[in-house]
Amino acid sequence: MRAQQVAVQKKEIGPGAITREPINAAKFHKPVSRVYIIPERCKECDYCWTFCPNEVLELSDEINAAGYHHPKVKAGKENDCVNCGMCQAVCPEFAIYAKEEPRQ
């Protein structure tokens, strides 16, 4: 429920935004990363999924031993984590981090 509200708010920022592509964009790659979680440490503060810039995360229906819902990757967003580090940095519990998948 709350997740939906936040998503709606974020979309509201959208209209009017101008996006431009850097001319040297080809020199960069967009990292594809994996999200790692330690569910038992989570206290459901909502920070990681609220502040994830790519809206990769949402709350899971599952609960840990303390009764908290931990985050999970949204269906359809599996390849959208770019390892910006926000979830790790904003998590007060050392319960989540992302790591770039090795390039083959």
Binding site: V32, S33, R34, I37, N79
Partner: peptide, 10 residues
């Protein structure tokens, strides 16, 4: 480019 995936529990 590698694939991402669902979260991994560690």
């Amino acid at each position: 480019v590698p694939h991402g995936g669902p979260e991994v529990r560690v």
